Amino acid sequence: MRSGLADRETFADEIEDDPFDDVPGDRLLTGLRGKDVLLVFVESYGRTATRGSSYSPGVVDVLRAGTERLAAAGYATRSAYLTSPTFGGASWLAHATAQSGLWVDSEGRYRQLQDSDRLSLTSAFARAGWRTVFDVPANTEDWPEGAAYYGFDEIYDSRNVGYAGPEFGYAPVPDQYTLEHFRREELAPRDRRPVMAEIDLISSHHPWTPPPPLVPWDEVGDGSVFAGTTEDAEPVDQEADPERARELYGRSIQYSWETLVSFLETYPDPDRVLIVLGDHEPWSWVSGDPDYAGGRDVPITVIAQDPAVVRRVADWDWSPGLLPPADAPVWPMSDLRDRVLTAFGPRG
């Protein structure tokens, strides 16, 4: 167990030891110039969703079908696993770990990072000329510490996206509306800079309820189309009824992926790149003890239409498709930032 003061000093040294700190913007992310880059977190999407659980067969079917559908639409997909610093909750620690390239596994480390000027993926893209956006539909109040650290140009939360539909369990905004609103505001306008965004898909956040149905994308509107579907279902108590919780958790992951695949089919773009990953496993009543079940691993997938993007990550040895095999590479989540900045930096 780390002592608080000793860890604070250790982490301060780690924050300062940054090989990318002084890299000028014109030397960052040159392999992604002109592309919209979406870092998409799927809430509570862990390894157990892909294998070894009562709910994994349904998720596997969706991932395999989604791989075929995306391939037919011209997308390449590569997948592996990351080890998350958290389990069952505290998603912000995982997000900060992926963004900063540091192991953020405590509230103390999180606060220390937020008070620093450590380069995040978001700030690296901003330095390189991208418009930067956070889409965090779970937020219901201002987030000044996030604005100070990440320095994004725009933030969307549950209060400013014009959503007029019902809530579904925890999620004040369902995933389909989150993606459609983001498209309308950030991807559809012409004569704009490329966008880098962190988008949080939260329909799979506990406590789980039946997810809403997918509707045609041109009918999403202000979200009122979702009224009268599944919003009246009571959230399941995962401790009291873990079997029902596991069922609804699996359905929620299927919904998030079906929504994302449908979005990419409906709105294809050769100049769009997605990095889609889980933040952590769901609570142990659903996923099992991390020491004996899926551990802390979460799936991660790169999705792109441009073959040059896939060539840039060839030496990662990730597997084709949305479903990583059991023996796929496993990195600490803190490796992601440096891997992205290196793979898509200048060559030769």
Rank of each mutant, 00 (worst) to 15 (best):
L82Y: 09
R78K: 02
E239C: 08
E68V: 08
T178Q: 13
D315I: 05
G345T: 00
S100K: 00
E239M: 12
D135Y: 08
E185I: 02
G25V: 01
G162L: 08
T86H: 12
T10C: 14
A293M: 12
T10M: 14
G162S: 05
S84Y: 13
L32A: 11
F134A: 12
Y163R: 02
R296W: 07
S262K: 00
E14I: 04
A304N: 10
L32P: 08
P270M: 14
S120H: 02
A73W: 08
P213D: 13
L29G: 09
Y177N: 06
T259I: 00
P174K: 03
R51P: 00
V340G: 06
T229D: 12
G345Y: 01
D289K: 10
P307G: 07
T50L: 08
T48I: 15
R27S: 11
L93C: 07
V23Y: 06
D200L: 07
P290F: 05
A171H: 03
R131N: 11
T122C: 13
D327V: 06
V62K: 04
A326M: 10
T83Q: 13
D291S: 15
D157G: 11
A147M: 12
H181N: 11
A72S: 14
L248P: 04
T209C: 13
P320S: 15
R118I: 04
E167M: 04
Y170N: 11
V310L: 15
E186C: 06
T86P: 10
P57K: 09
V340Y: 08
L38P: 03
N160E: 14
V42W: 07
D269M: 11
T10I: 14
G4H: 12
A128Q: 01
D297N: 12
V302T: 10
D269I: 06
P85V: 04
G250Y: 03
L5N: 09
R78G: 00
T77N: 09
Y150F: 15
P307N: 09
I300E: 08
G228L: 06
W331T: 10
W92G: 11
W208D: 12
E198C: 03
S123D: 12
L277G: 02
R193S: 15
M1T: 02
Y163C: 06
R339A: 11
L248N: 02
D289L: 15
G58V: 04
D142Y: 00
